[in-house]
Amino acid sequence: MKRAMSDLVAKFQSLSIAAPALSKEQSAFSTQWQSVLHAGQVEQQLDQLNLFLRDNTFLVATLQPTETDVQLFEAVLPLSKQLVASTKDTKDVYAKYRHVFRWVDYLQQLLQVPGADQLALNHDLELPHEVVE
């Protein structure tokens, strides 16, 4: 697990996506998600993660993914696969975690995760329109 994580981070670094200068708000997001990861709370915070990714494409609200995205992705990919595998009601899981799945899909493509290890995603599955209260 540890080794695989450093592999993904190394892969990300090899893509030479410049690390942007972070605003105060972005730094706070980065710190927030790092602390969730280090506290081993990713699974418990998955709903929060989905909510954040509803409004932001990436975890630090940047134009391109950062290393924080890659580190969290390492933990979220297996959780996402479990969620899809453990239910017959795919639509329901997709609807609930659509933003996490979209983000996972972006990162697994970016990091060229081998096909067999990827979250298999049906991009065209019809989901109910999400209403923001």
Partner: peptide, 18 residues
Amino acid sequence: LELLDAQLNLRTFVLGGL
């Protein structure tokens, strides 16, 4: 807009991709 929204449910960009 609702159709565009549906297209972007599981895609970061309109055609998907990076």
